[in-house]
Amino acid sequence: MTVLKERARAKVNLTLHVLGRRGDGYHDLESLVAFADCADALTFSEGESFSLAVTGPRAADCGDLTDNLVAKAERLLAERVPKLKSGAFVLDKHLPAAAGIGGGSADAAATLRLLAGANDIARDDVRVIAAAQAAGADVPVCLLSSACMMRGAGERVTPLPLPRLPCVLVNPGVPVPTKDVFAAIGLKAGETFTPPSGATADIAWPTASSPPTAWLAAIKSGRNDLEPVAVKIQPVIAEVLALLGSAKGCTLSRMSGSGATCFGLFDTDASAATAAASLKSAHPTWWVEASGLS
């Protein structure tokens, strides 16, 4: 019996620029995306039919499993691959849901990677890519699960040689519906987004031989266009950003995705661990993780 395992790493939008809104209603984005060491875990055992069980500290957050993105991803790939070998999935859930770090999308992408392996299909097979795109906007980038530039509505993904960056991830446990954030931006179909005064989306990204300081400078020159809107919806996000930014060794604090998870980049893993421990102590109900991005 085939038993395979995959990690579904948390997605972090180091930058997220809104370029406009397309005629099909989707927002046109450009985002530098990296992935954290913290992750959900997914185990697959080949069997006669699909099944899904959820364990872990955040299993209760998954709700109705028939609507889970693991089930959706399996169904979408089965529609594209005749006689797809499927089986039993066990999701060990650690990442917070609806938090701006693509937890469900990462689970869906891990599902597609597992099924591709079990069926001797390349991960970049057009059918796998099509299933990822159909599963959700963040699933194609999570399918790669390594640093890249994401463009369009998530369908265009280009790998980038980002060095490992120590970080702390913090989610204060408040909901920030993605649809509400984009609605608050107020773009109509066909309209372009006007960035803050002096801001630009035209960033010269470093190369593989560039030092981490060059990458940090480039990331700092970007922004998350959803952050100001999300802060208005949930003001506690501003508190999280301030606490991260004031921590010793923090070089940048910013929100990921549409929130409410925020990240701080740190000069060393040790300073990130110290900051995470302090935040956990002061805010025991928050989700806080020291990690690395790559």
Rank of each mutant, 00 (worst) to 15 (best):
274 T>Q: 13
256 S>A: 15
82 P>V: 02
96 P>H: 05
67 D>M: 07
114 L>G: 01
269 D>S: 02
164 R>Q: 06
277 A>K: 09
208 A>Y: 06
30 E>I: 10
85 K>T: 12
291 S>C: 04
134 A>G: 12
195 P>W: 14
188 K>A: 13
162 L>D: 12
23 G>Y: 11
81 V>N: 03
248 K>E: 13
290 A>N: 00
123 R>C: 13
105 S>I: 00
212 P>C: 04
252 L>K: 00
57 P>R: 13
291 S>D: 01
175 P>Y: 07
234 Q>M: 04
34 A>R: 09
258 S>N: 10
79 E>M: 14
108 A>I: 14
57 P>V: 13
25 G>R: 08
52 L>G: 03
289 E>C: 09
73 A>N: 11
58 R>I: 04
185 I>H: 03
73 A>V: 11
72 K>E: 07
227 E>K: 08
46 E>T: 12
284 P>I: 06
37 D>Q: 12
93 K>T: 09
1 M>T: 14
181 V>I: 01
214 A>R: 11
20 G>Q: 11
230 A>T: 04
41 A>N: 14
215 W>F: 14
27 H>A: 02
69 L>D: 03
132 A>I: 04
211 P>N: 09
8 A>S: 05
190 G>D: 00
270 A>K: 12
119 N>W: 06
193 F>M: 11
282 A>I: 10
53 A>Y: 13
283 H>E: 04
163 P>R: 10
164 R>L: 06
96 P>Y: 05
195 P>E: 15
100 G>L: 08
87 G>R: 00
226 L>S: 02
30 E>Y: 11
84 L>M: 10
149 M>C: 03
183 A>W: 07
27 H>T: 03
50 F>A: 11
260 A>W: 02
26 Y>M: 08
216 L>Q: 11
211 P>T: 11
173 G>N: 10
168 V>T: 00
23 G>S: 15
168 V>H: 02
191 E>M: 02
240 V>Q: 03
31 S>H: 00
288 V>C: 02
179 K>F: 04
96 P>F: 03
249 G>L: 14
147 A>N: 03
90 V>H: 15
23 G>P: 12
210 S>V: 10
94 H>C: 14
136 G>M: 12
211 P>G: 10
254 R>P: 10
119 N>A: 09
29 L>F: 01
133 Q>C: 15
273 A>C: 09
148 C>K: 00
183 A>K: 07
225 D>L: 02
127 R>P: 08
50 F>D: 10
286 W>V: 03
187 L>R: 08
97 A>R: 03
123 R>K: 12
259 G>D: 05
29 L>Y: 00
292 G>W: 09
198 G>Y: 12
240 V>G: 01
53 A>V: 14
237 I>D: 00
206 P>G: 04
21 R>K: 07
190 G>F: 00
98 A>R: 07
44 F>V: 06
116 A>R: 12
170 V>M: 05
44 F>M: 08
290 A>F: 02
